[in-house]
């Protein structure tokens, strides 16, 4: 494949004569090159995550664009709890981030064939993810019911609920998939040879966690 470069100091010309029909012995063809080692699923999940990053990137860029541009109160600092009770959101975030560790341990357990350990860590991941969702729910309840901020209140409301909401939506999707796997595992339908699929699900979960770090930084730290 690199021959074009090396043979063409000037114009690489070769004359072909189809009628020649001469029975010159075939040169041995060049050795076959190696194929990519990644499986279909892995590439697909990487691409899926890439497109998700493009999606969240747009929402985050929009959020950043509108920081400080709002013309109607309430402003983020009046509503978001970081300045008042930073522990709440940080607490929730720690739960979400910790779940990333548990899912790694779960995948390792499955690889080692330890079903009980897999169920435990996988279950813990689900519980921690659930805690995060519940925490988000309480935060939203406080904002909507007590502060009276919703999508239509002002641009901040639109941006906040869209960005955080889409993230929570992804967490929910993740939890549904995780729960499905957990149930299947209890039924004995997740043997260690399925490790790659389980591992790919954990990649998606890591993405959901990783994007939260960015969302958190933008919404609760920069945006305040």
């Amino acid at each position: 494949m690199t021959r074009t470069g090396s043979t063409s100091e000037d114009i690489a010309v070769t004359t072909m004569s189809t009628q020649s029909g001469s029975s010159t012995p075939l040169m041995p063809p060049p050795a076959l090159s190696q194929k990519l080692k990644w499986s279909n699923g892995k590439i697909a999940v990487v691409l899926l995550i890439a497109s998700e990053i493009a999606f969240f990137g747009t929402l985050i860029a929009t959020y950043i664009f509108y920081i400080g541009r709002d013309i109607n109160p309430p402003y983020p600092q009046d509503v978001l709890e970081v300045s008042v009770a930073p522990l709440k959101v940080v607490f929730n975030s720690i739960f979400l981030l910790a779940s990333s560790i548990w899912i790694v341990l779960a995948v390792k357990a499955l690889a080692a064939g330890k079903k009980a350990a897999f169920l435990f860590w996988w279950g813990l991941t689900i519980l921690f993810g659930l805690e995060f969702l519940v925490g988000t729910g309480f935060e939203w309840y406080g904002m909507i019911v007590e502060d009276g901020v919703w999508m239509g209140t002002n641009v901040f409301g639109s941006c906040f609920y869209t960005l955080v909401g889409f993230h929570a939506f992804h967490v929910t999707m993740g939890l549904i998939i995780l729960t499905l796997i957990w149930v299947l595992a209890v039924l004995g339908k997740v043997p260690p040879r399925q490790i790659e699929k389980v591992d790919l699900i954990s990649w998606y979960w890591h993405f959901v966690d990783g994007i939260w770090i960015v969302v958190f930084t933008v919404v609760y730290i920069i945006g305040n």
Partner: peptide, 14 residues
């Protein structure tokens, strides 16, 4: 004429 023409694969200078 159904012979094939000269096959030119490219030319770095051009």
């Amino acid at each position: 004429d159904d012979t094939e023409p000269a096959q030119v694969y490219g030319s770095n200078p051009i």
